[in-house]
C-alpha cells in the first residue's frame, strides 16, 4: 500500500519534471527569447533586468548552448551547469518567481494567485453540479436501459457533448443578458460598492450563467460513463443477490449500484481535468470571468509571454496534482485495492 502510494507520487513528480522542461523549452527555444526583449513596451532598464533574471546571456543548458540565439561566445560544452538559463529558470521557480507581466508590470505569481481562486470557484461549482446530475441521470438511464427514457438521455448527452463550450456560453449569455436581465459578464458589478451578503448575491448572479454552461457541457459525459458503469454493475451477481434479499429497487440502486459505480467516476473526473481546464478557458473568456482562463486569453492577445508561461505552468501542475489526488482517493475508496 505504502509502496503503491510512493510509486504514484514518484510518477507525479516525473510528470511535473516533464512539464517544467516542456515549459522551459517552449518559451525559451520555440518562443524566441529575443522577441521578448524587442517588446516596445519595455524600457531599456527592464530589458536589462529581464536579461539578468532569466540569465539570457548564459547558455540554455549545458550542451544546448547553440540553441540560445543571443549566446555569448562561450565554448560549446564544459559550461558550468549551474550557470545556465535552465538553472536560472529552476531557481526562479523555486523562489516562486514567475517573472513580471509585460502588460501590467506586476509579478506574474501575484497576478495568477489572485485569479486562481476565481477559476477554482467556477470549476468547483460547475463540476459538482455536473457530477451530481450526470450521476443521477446515468443511474436512471442504466436502470431503464433500452427504454424511451434511456434513448432520449443518450441522444441528449451526445448532443450536449458535441456543443462547442464557448458557443453554448455565448448563446446562454445572449439569452440571459437580453431576456433575463443577467449581467453581461465579470465577477461582480464594478463600482457598486456592495458589501457582505449583498456582494455575495451579486457574485452569485454573475456566477449563474458560467456555472450553467459548465454543468451542461459536462453532464453529457458523466451521464454516458455512469450509464455504462451502472449497466455493468447491475448485471453482476451481487445485484441478483440483493434482489433475492428482497431489497427494493431504490435500495439496490442506492446501496449497491451507486456505491460500486462511484469508483470509476473518481477516475473519470480526474481524466477529465484536461477538458475541465479547456472548458474554463472558453467559459471565462465568454463571460469575462476573471480567472486563469481569461488570463490566458488576455495574455495571448497582448503577447504577454511571462503571464502565458506562468499560467500554463500553473494549470498543468495543478492538473497533475489533482490527478494524483484522485488516483490516491480511488486507491483508498476501493477496499479491493486498499486492503490488497
Amino acid at each position: 500500500m505504502t509502496k503503491l502510494i510512493l510509486r504514484k507520487l514518484g510518477w507525479a513528480l516525473l510528470t511535473i519534471a516533464f512539464v517544467l522542461l516542456l515549459n522551459f523549452f517552449l518559451f525559451r527555444v520555440m518562443g524566441d527569447p529575443t522577441r521578448l526583449l524587442k517588446d516596445p513596451r519595455l524600457s531599456q532598464a527592464t530589458i536589462e533586468a529581464i536579461r539578468v533574471r532569466f540569465g539570457l546571456d548564459k547558455p540554455v543548458i549545458n550542451c544546448f548552448e547553440t540553441l540560445n540565439p543571443i549566446k555569448a561566445s562561450l565554448n560549446a560544452c564544459g559550461v558550468n551547469p549551474f550557470n545556465t538559463q535552465f538553472a536560472a529558470y529552476l531557481s526562479n521557480l523555486l523562489k516562486g518567481d514567475l517573472g513580471v507581466s509585460f502588460h501590467s508590470q506586476r509579478p506574474v505569481a501575484e497576478l495568477l494567485t489572485e485569479r486562481l481562486w476565481n477559476t477554482l470557484l467556477l470549476i468547483g461549482a460547475g463540476q459538482i453540479l455536473a457530477i451530481i446530475i450526470g450521476i443521477i441521470l446515468g443511474l436512471v438511464a442504466a436502470w431503464k436501459a433500452r427504454t424511451v427514457l434511456d434513448y432520449s438521455a443518450l441522444v441528449g448527452s451526445l448532443t450536449v457533448w458535441s456543443l462547442p463550450t464557448f458557443w453554448l456560453g455565448i448563446l446562454l449569455l445572449f439569452w440571459g443578458s437580453n431576456y433575463l436581465g443577467l449581467p453581461l459578464g465579470g465577477k461582480e458589478t464594478i463600482g457598486s460598492g456592495l458589501t457582505g451578503l449583498k456582494r455575495l448575491g451579486d457574485i452569485g448572479t454573475h456566477l449563474l450563467l458560467p456555472t450553467l454552461t459548465f454543468t451542461l457541457v459536462f453532464i453529457g459525459e458523466y451521464m454516458l460513463i455512469m450509464r455504462s458503469t451502472v449497466l455493468d454493475v447491475l448485471s453482476e451477481d451481487y445485484i441478483l443477490t440483493a434482489k433475492a434479499k428482497g431489497l427494493s429497487t431504490f435500495q439496490i440502486l442506492k446501496d449497491h449500484a451507486l456505491r460500486n459505480a462511484m469508483l470509476p467516476i473518481v477516475t473519470i473526473v480526474a481524466l477529465n481535468l484536461g477538458f475541465t481546464v479547456a472548458g474554463a478557458i472558453q467559459i471565462e473568456t465568454v463571460f469575462s470571468w476573471p480567472g486563469l482562463g481569461l488570463t490566458i486569453f488576455e495574455a495571448v492577445g497582448r503577447r504577454d509571454y511571462p503571464v502565458l508561461q506562468g499560467a500554463f505552468l500553473l494549470l498543468a501542475v495543478s492538473v497533475v496534482l489533482a490527478n494524483v489526488i484522485a488516483d490516491l482517493l480511488y486507491t483508498f475508496l476501493d477496499p479491493r485495492v486498499r486492503l490488497a
Binding site: 451481487y238 428482497g246 446501496d255 456505491r259 460500486n260
Partner: peptide, 22 residues
C-alpha cells in the same frame, strides 16, 4: 416481502454473489 424472510437462496459461485465493496 416473502423473499429472504421465507425463501432464501445461496447462489452458484458465491465469489461474485457478495458485493465486493461492502
Amino acid at each position: 416481502s416473502l423473499r429472504w424472510q421465507d425463501l432464501a437462496i445461496i447462489f452458484q459461485g458465491a465469489m461474485n454473489a457478495l458485493n465486493p465493496v461492502k
